[in-house]
Design a protein around this nucleic acid. Sequence first.
DNA 1: CTCACCTTGAAACTTATGTTCTGACCCCAA
DNA 2: TTGGGGTCAGAACATAAGTTTCAAGGTGAG
Lengths: 216, 216
Amino acid sequence: MTPRKSLPPRRQKILDFIQQFIQENGIPPTVRDIQHACDISSTSVVDYNLRLLNRDGYLNRRSEVARGIELLDQEGQPVSNSPRVMVVGAIAAGQPLPVFSQEGAGSSAEFDTIEVSPELPRRHGKLFALRVKGTSMMDALIDDGDVVVIKPTLQADNGDMVVAWLKDEEEATLKKYYLEGDQVRLQPANSQMSAIYCPARNVEVRGKVVSVIRKF
Amino acid sequence: MTPRKSLPPRRQKILDFIQQFIQENGIPPTVRDIQHACDISSTSVVDYNLRLLNRDGYLNRRSEVARGIELLDQEGQPVSNSPRVMVVGAIAAGQPLPVFSQEGAGSSAEFDTIEVSPELPRRHGKLFALRVKGTSMMDALIDDGDVVVIKPTLQADNGDMVVAWLKDEEEATLKKYYLEGDQVRLQPANSQMSAIYCPARNVEVRGKVVSVIRKF
DNA sequence: CTCACCTTGAAACTTATGTTCTGACCCCAA
DNA sequence: TTGGGGTCAGAACATAAGTTTCAAGGTGAG
């Protein structure tokens, strides 16, 4: 297969549009959808470019089939339409958390993304993810290299697994959260480890963990 | 929304076919695809039944759009085409493992299934899953309620996380596997726990763990 | 310059595919 | 029986959507 290289702008635009269209509509666009979205004056030009994209391994076309476009990844495998969440950075004890909620400008293009079950965004709305560095989260049953999927929120309910920022210690941690009076109990998932108690002032909840992804 | 009830056979057949078609082709079928697959003599009959299925909340139809069928789940949410693997049972220390490799007969209908990243079946082929009961797998960083996705195999390479069956102990466990001479070292994922050594005779590898799924 | 060669335009063409109309069949209650 | 509602057939229709044709505009090498 022809390796990926930089595409002519028009072809890149077509490719981007197809991806976005599938993301939004669940089915691939028609030739004329592409034509209008990319300000192309004729379907033949779309057809021409699709043919080239097909030849170069960016997509598959089923001929004579309506909406017969199928995007391919680098290995020539069909690309799924599963939702992806941005991996905005890493989390490690003692390290500052990467900024979040700073969207708007750059698209997801500049971030790594990870595929998640469609069920997650459906249930929890907008999500992001952090890659875990080091073994300091082991008491939350989370290993080096795992990815935690997080729903950003400043408010947690008792029992939620949260991303907690301990101000004094300047440390991020993943624990179960229990507000007890003006103290917060941070309970490791591993029941053999003991809980941490600290004043509520010292704890900032940054988000709830909704899923952990570990691959081998 | 009208609650789910048993459908007339023809309508059920149509629904099943749509699901299968999407699974196999990645895009929804046309009215005529359905017509031929379900031995219906006229497209109008298909249209008629699709209209009823639409009315009853089994699917959405975008009118005047080719392949504009979108399946809905019980909550009226769009159904994804992410692959699903069967959850064939539970794994717990001291309990026998459920039979696997006994496919062929019953379809996946009788089992729970869980959605996984399309990447997993693509890389590992046929998979199944086990729900973890109890906290006995905690030293593998796996908690009660987690689901482990497993590629069935009797052969493991050193360093693989495997489902190991200890014959004498009659116990299933998840550990990293290292064959050392005629001994097997089973290394917990948690490096603070010590490894288990036992004779190779006593260890049966049932499969490799390819992913762990944990939701909150 | 000039000739290949890639790219674009416009329009026509063909096929795919959703929609509609009409009549028939079946079943069941009035 | 009779009539209405639900279902099915067959055919035709209308539009959506893939494909093709022909011509023209660029661009770079020789």
